[in-house]
Amino acid sequence: MSFINYSSREINCKLVYYGPGLCGKTTNLHYIYAKTSPDAKGKMISLATETERTLFFDFLPLSLGEIRGFKTRFHLYTVPGQVFYDASRKLILKGVDGVIFVADSQIERMEANIESLDNLRLNLIDQGYDLNKLPYVVQYNKRDLPNAAPMEQLREVLNPTKAPEFEACATSGAGVFDTLKAVAKSVLTELRRGQ
């Protein structure tokens, strides 16, 4: 849920990167962190296992600039992708303003993508949200890999509602900021519409 502070003149929003294990959610945040100027970002927190798999969440606070004298701050979270961390994923979706579904383009990961997307829908319903009504974008990550599935196939299976979608390679940064901008813009537009 967005938080508007008229005292400190800030608009705070929460974005969540969702997707199957090892799809590149944390890599998205690392790239954003690396390419953002120090005055626009806070400390990045990763609650990860010793093998660098996300255990609870990653967190990155980001300032995007000012609108009408109000600072816009986005809190970026990732969820742990591994199937058995479902309880944690539910918690992180609480108060979400926008969701990025990071799909792994590799053909072998199609089932994992479908399972994660179904899980996202169900967990949102649990928190009282409807994916079709929430600011939402799809990112097809790992497009650079030779075993990436054709875009038409990914689109048909993972984006039947035709949400805004982006091809990406999070390790090189291709598509990372396009994805972030699209969802952030959609969140602000939705906030205004909700008034």
């Binding site: 609108i67 816009t72 205004r192 008034q195």
Partner: peptide, 18 residues
């Protein structure tokens, strides 16, 4: 009772941010 900042935001405000 207080006017919301959100109602004052225009499309161009949002575009300018990005």
């Amino acid at each position: 009772s207080e006017p919301s900042i959100l109602t004052e935001i225009t499309d161009s405000d949002i575009d300018n941010l990005f």
